[in-house]
Design a protein around this nucleic acid. Sequence first.
DNA 1: AATACTATGAGGTACATC
DNA 2: GATGTACCTCATAGTATT
Length: 651
Amino acid sequence: MTMQRVRSLYWVISDQWRRWCYSLREGFLSFGFLFEEEEFRVGVWRSGVKWLGVLLAEFLVANVSEGDISDIDWTSDEESETNLEAVASANPTCTETIVGNEEASSSNAARSKMIGHFVGMGFAEKLVLKAIDENGEGNPDLILSCILTFSTLEESPPQQLSTNSDPCSSGYNENFLNDLSDMDSWSEDELEVCLKGNDAYKSEKHKMLLSLAESGSLSEKEEKLLTLANMGYALEDVEIALERWPETPVDDLLEFIRVAQMAREEDCYLPEDDLKPKHILSGSSKSKKRKHFEMKKNVIEESIRLPNPMIGFGVPSMQPPERVHRSLPQEAKGPPYFYYENVALTPKGVWDTISRFLYDIEPEFVDSKFFSACARKRGYIHNLPIENRFPLVPLPPLTIQQAFPLSKRWWPSWDPRDKLNCIQTAIASAKLTERIRTVLERSDGDPPEAIQRYIMEQCRKWNLVWVGRNKVAPLEPDEVEMLLGFPKNHTRGGGISRTDRYKSLGNSFQVDTVAYHLSVLKDIFPHGINVLSLFSGIGGAEVALHRLGIKLKNVVSIEKSKANRDIVRSWWEQTNQTGTLIDFDDVTLFDSARVEQLTSTIGGFDLVVGGSPCNNLAGSNRVSRDGLEGKESSLFYDYFRILDLVKIYRQ
DNA sequence: AATACTATGAGGTACATC
DNA sequence: GATGTACCTCATAGTATT
């Protein structure tokens, strides 16, 4: 790793404080790097580039936090552990260490936990202590906000490297990076780590392993090591890979190693070649390297692709895809189980970000057309088992003709549709359908092809169905309810307008799809579950669980719209639920105190379910399709925040 | 004041063709 | 590969009507 490479790292923070902190806590350093004036974000889902980032980060952490770099002006205050230590504490054991150093007189375990929590997020302990002293320990959100204020006051977030030397701010990054380039300050040990890719080191270690193998005293890990080394891979790479993913099969390790090698190949462009491991460079021409580089770029852009057919891990009506097993990272495993939903066709990079926050779990993209007569392409990220799912019965109609048998009589032969498009929040006006009718009445029999094309275009655009001779109409609200799997008149009453019914329905889950995924909970929780439902809307998740026959013990529902809350409340009473329904209106105000209180009251949430606002992601939005940072869609981060709190308090 | 209507494309994916 | 074609999308803001 050349120092030039290290210098080109920069930290993606600026106005994105929260993400940075959380990513840090998750163990993924959320930084990017610049290469030839192009920006690369690190941490892209399942792309080799993330691994490159992890590799770089581990290198930095290993070599700096453990070493004694005397000329870095961290601080004169020994209490300040520096944020860098917190970076190291992306490894949870390190967090514990820091908490453990906390004076034993601090018998208050909650305080300790709290400090550890924030330090683990990457804040300097000094700031954390200060914030806790000022705010007490009762309200973590307040403390977080206070810490952020301190941090912001003490620095201006670096877009580029500068010379900020404040140890309590991210200025440490800059010092740390700049000073890394100063080789004089490196201890011999550190240099040895840098150099250990060279041939001498490699062959010696390799020889040692070979001799151990002869005596038959190799551990499983060493055996893997030797296997890969014999295949010609650098021991250095194999060791790093094995250390990080000890349980990983050899095939996956190979991919990691390949990425590591590509990382070093990139370094070939840079002037300082001294530290380069020679075994990787031999015979690689510049054009070949360029090819690699471009390939990696594509990896970023195409890191998440939609499956075709869009059936996720399988749907009832089709043969399951080849892959029927998945392994989740330890930290993602339930309980609590969680289920997150949003539109599949977002602006680029959005699902990468969402996945990165939700434990790097691969999104399951499913089109509800396999569960309903209407399409609904959505992505779901969850930690539920994917074996032994079962669908709701009765199976809903899967074609327009089955769903609307009366329409057959009026359906013209030149309208080939058997599925409706995605149900949205607005419907066609009566003017449009009237226009279509008058156009059609001008011609006997089939209209001219141009007219047919126009009408088909409008029918697809507005999801129109044939309801009479020459007469098309938008779906009625109760028909939408049926297509989405809700009971008839679910959204009726309560003073809600027709327009708002369409809006609420258009923003909802497709119940059969969600229920199919949630069905595995029935065996896990035979006596019922406690549900935290964020962005509940008209209660798609609740209806799905109820229809699955899963008893709802306690449901805490957070929904902004009063009309929607009333709908869920009304449904709750109509269905004679024996559990308790508690509702809140503002997800941003749902803080740790509430989570703690509710957790202790009901005994822990078993499921956190929700689909965060899509309006800044959805293609229909021509005004404010701003991506995940949009006004409403950024509430996704609250989903993550609250899920995180639920996990903390459930322990 | 509440509700209904209307104008407003970009940004993708998927597939065929060259 | 490059290019062209067909198709689809959990919406919003302003205006008109009830």
